[in-house]
Computed example of a mutant assay.
Amino acid sequence: MPHAFALNLYQEGDFVPQYTFEWCVAASIQMMHNLIDDTGAGTWADPVQQGELWEMARARSSNSFNGANPLGWAQVVTEVGMGPYAVVSIANYEEALQTAARAIADTDRPVGLVMWRGRHVWVMSGFESLGDPDQFREFSVTGIRVQDPLYPYGDQQWGPSPAPNTLLTPEQLATQFVVREPRRWSSDLPTGYMLVLPFAEASSGLRTS
């Protein structure tokens, strides 16, 4: 019988705001580093570094005039030693949440969420579920821990930014985590809920500089 289960990578100090309205991907890369590096000794939060990470991601994005996109995001986190990561698109919402939760449980690494039909990104740092994903093939995600780099500004159309480490219900997350708009940037991925997903083949180690 599946029991309530919870996993959260977040520690105080892991959150990083985006320092410009364009740099959500770069701030999310910094947060992902902080969530993976639980020593706290090498926190990434520097504005200059955030700009450099944005340029890296933008250079690796298929449509760089749109800024940094999820393909560039996945490539940068892999290159700097947090990978491997890849972009996946999942048609079913519940399946997308299960895929994200299972990836966090399998790798102890966060998941990127492509928000607002492709216009913004958050980091999923943990979850609550009925059933441990490592023990049950079938389990249901009941809560999602999120980091929105735009906090506290939010968006007039999409709603307020949740505070760092907020636990959202699937229904609450669904107001901003919606199917990605295919025309936002060139990609052969099918329409769906888009994740920047860690895979279990861990890299040789996290670089802290």
Rank of each mutant, 00 (worst) to 15 (best):
S209A: 11
M1K: 10
I144R: 04
V48P: 02
N66Q: 08
V196L: 10
E128I: 07
L71D: 08
I144A: 03
W185R: 05
L71E: 14
L173I: 07
L7Y: 02
V80R: 15
N34G: 01
V76T: 07
Y19L: 10
W54R: 05
P149D: 08
V76I: 15
M124V: 03
P149L: 11
L206Q: 10
A100G: 05
V121Y: 05
L167H: 04
D14N: 13
I104D: 02
P2M: 06
A45N: 14
L168T: 00
I104P: 00
G131C: 08
V111E: 03
V141R: 04
G143A: 13
E171R: 13
L189S: 05
A74T: 11
G72D: 02
F15Q: 06
P47C: 08
L206G: 06
F15W: 15
T20P: 04
M124Q: 13
S89Q: 04
F127Q: 10
G67V: 11
Q49E: 07
H33F: 11
D188Q: 14
L53Y: 14
T78M: 07
W116Y: 12
A163T: 05
Q135R: 14
D38G: 04
P170Q: 11
Q75D: 15
G81W: 14
A27P: 09
A59G: 15
A105M: 08
E128A: 04
